[in-house]
């Protein structure tokens, strides 16, 4: 019974929302509009729930001492410091929260992601090899883009330019090759992927609506 109600909500909601796009019926439009308003309010709670789960995890770590207690404590203290400061002083310009945001969150988040640059440079040396025909094609195309997107590519194209019978031809033109790769083969395969992914999304949506996919109920 409990499951049936949930499945009915999904079914009715899904069918109405799908039909709304294809049919021009004022009642459906009105429902659509209200459903969107509702979704915004409900999502607020979903987002707050996510933060609550994160904190619960920290308290669990603290309780069961899986890691040194200074680590979960750091998260908990920094979380509540920011929240309390924010509730008292607001979050606009020149507030303590903005100061913490600009001096901790922005630089550290950027730094965490910059680690990827080290890994990819090491990977380029170790793994990017012409082992067979396919990987050779990948290597050549990747190298063309790497050089084609920097000013050096333009420079090479310039010095290898030939003037033959009034027409200008560049022998080694990485930027032009990059442009061709991006606009022709890349568009072709990405379009095929888009078709595949979209059909996948639609079939998953239909599975959810008609209760074939029930993983979320567990």
């Amino acid at each position: 019974m409990k499951e049936l109600i949930a499945l009915l909500i999904v079914l009715i909601g899904g069918v109405i929302m799908t039909l709304q796009y294809f049919l021009n019926i004022p009642v459906l439009d009105l429902i659509y509009k209200n459903v969107l308003d509702w979704s915004i309010v409900i999502s607020t709670f979903a987002l707050l729930l996510a933060i609550r789960s994160l904190l619960a995890r920290q308290f669990q770590d603290l309780k069961f001492k899986k890691v040194k207690s200074i680590f979960p404590l750091t998260t908990i203290i920094s979380f509540f410091t920011v929240v309390i400061l924010g509730l008292i002083f607001g979050i606009g310009e020149k507030t303590p929260v903005d100061f913490i945001y600009q001096n901790i969150q922005v630089p550290l988040q950027a730094t965490v992601f910059s680690l990827l640059a080290f890994y990819i440079s090491s990977a380029a040396y170790r793994a990017f090899r012409a082992k067979n025909f396919s990987s050779t094609v990948l290597l050549i195309s990747g190298s063309i883009v790497i050089i084609g997107r920097i000013p050096l590519g333009d420079f090479i194209a310039k010095i290898t330019t030939l003037h033959i019978n009034g027409s200008v031809i560049s022998l080694i033109d990485f930027p032009a090759w990059t442009k061709w790769i991006l606009n022709v083969p890349n568009v072709g395969i990405k379009r095929a992927f888009i078709f595949g992914i979209t059909l996948g999304i639609i079939s998953t949506s239909l599975k959810v609506i008609f209760g074939i996919e029930r993983g979320w109920l567990k």
Binding site: G13, G14, S39, F45, T198, I202, T204, L217
Partner: peptide
């Protein structure tokens, strides 16, 4: 807790279908 989830999932899946077909196919 499954009911609000069902609401978001069902309506979310429903609104997905039409515009996706038009935009990406």
């Amino acid at each position: 807790a499954k009911y609000p989830l069902a609401f978001l999932l069902g309506t979310g899946a429903g609104v997905e279908i039409g515009p996706r077909i038009e935009t990406s196919i």
